[in-house]
């Protein structure tokens, strides 16, 4: 028996409009809280300006004796994309789960894929805004040279955004409640940022770089820096780094699919056993 048009999960142009509408309300929700919006978008810019004025003029042999600001601009492009797709996404998903928003969405006809597409596109829009802002400030304020090849720059950012979103969704399933979301995400993020050499260029042969190489942030930084790197023989495409990010993204998807929950954890308990007991007791 053929499914009736009403029961198909994708309905063509109607659903494209549905996602566009959902995206509109995600954007509305973001900008209607202007303080949070300005801080989210402005954080990477403020960081860049602070670091540039303190250390931006010094040179680093690790990146071919260019000014460090030439390293910070792509670095904070990464920071902007990662903090939007990983930090903000993770915290927002935990809050939505714990306040019952996800459960309500699950009980509405909005398909899960449409919700996630709108969420991801929303994060991409906010990321692009920061990338443009950082490149403009870098160029106009600090005469930084822009990427000599935009294709690897764009691919590294898109793969990074998708992977960090997937890891963010997975991370949200590991966080038990709203109050823990901010601290847990910040600690993971800032420790890895430090290890991965966002604050100063890292010698690729150092022990720290080797440890950081296990995690995706280091690879985001090297993949996005590559198209800025003008040293002779330096490849603009950092395929290895892009591939490692993609692997992390795939792992994120796998964890998210296994552990995803529409119900607040608070009412269902943490572990599987506690959940089964509390679901009965805490009806």
């Amino acid at each position: 028996m053929n499914p009736s048009p009403a029961s198909r999960s994708f309905r063509g142009i109607t659903d494209v409009r549905l996602v566009a509408r959902q995206l509109y309300f995600e954007q509305l929700n973001f900008w209607l809280n202007p303080v949070a919006a300005v801080f989210t978008v402005g954080f990477s810019v403020v960081f860049l300006v602070l670091l540039a004025s303190s250390a931006g003029g010094s040179r680093s042999s690790v990146i071919g004796n260019v000014r460090v600001i030439q390293y910070y601009v792509p670095g904070f492009v990464d920071y902007g994309v990662m903090s939007t797709c990983f930090n903000a996404m993770t915290i927002s998903l935990v809050v939505r789960r714990e306040t019952g928003l996800l459960k309500r969405l699950r009980l509405s006809p909005l398909p899960t894929w449409a919700m996630l597409t709108a969420l991801f596109t929303n994060a991409v829009i906010i990321s692009v805004l920061q990338v443009v802002l950082l490149l403009v400030i870098g160029k106009a304020g600090y005469h930084v040279s822009l990427p000599h090849d935009y294709a690897p720059f764009a691919v590294a950012l898109v793969v990074g955004a998708a992977s960090f979103t997937a890891v963010g969704v997975a991370m949200s399933t590991l966080i038990p409640n709203q109050e823990a979301a901010g601290p847990m995400v910040s600690i993971v993020f800032f420790v890895l940022l430090f290890l991965s050499g966002l604050w100063y260029p890292l010698d690729p042969n150092s022990a720290m770089a080797k440890v950081a190489g296990w995690f995706p942030i280091r690879h985001m930084i090297t993949a996005v820096f590559a198209p800025f790197d003008k040293r002779p023989g330096a490849p603009a495409w950092a395929w290895h780094d892009i591939a490692v990010m993609a692997l992390w993204g795939a792992a994120g998807v796998a964890v998210a699919l296994r552990r995803w929950s529409w119900s607040p954890r608070r009412s269902e308990g943490g572990g599987r056993r506690a959940r089964s007991q509390r679901a009965v007791a805490g009806e």
């Binding site: 029961s7 306040t99 019952g100 459960k103 006809p109």
Partner: peptide, 16 residues
């Protein structure tokens, strides 16, 4: 999806 178009749900927790 077609089923959820025909039901309405009011949950215990406010979620907006």
């Amino acid at each position: 999806r077609a089923f959820r178009e025909r039901i309405g749900v009011v949950l215990q927790e406010l979620a907006v």
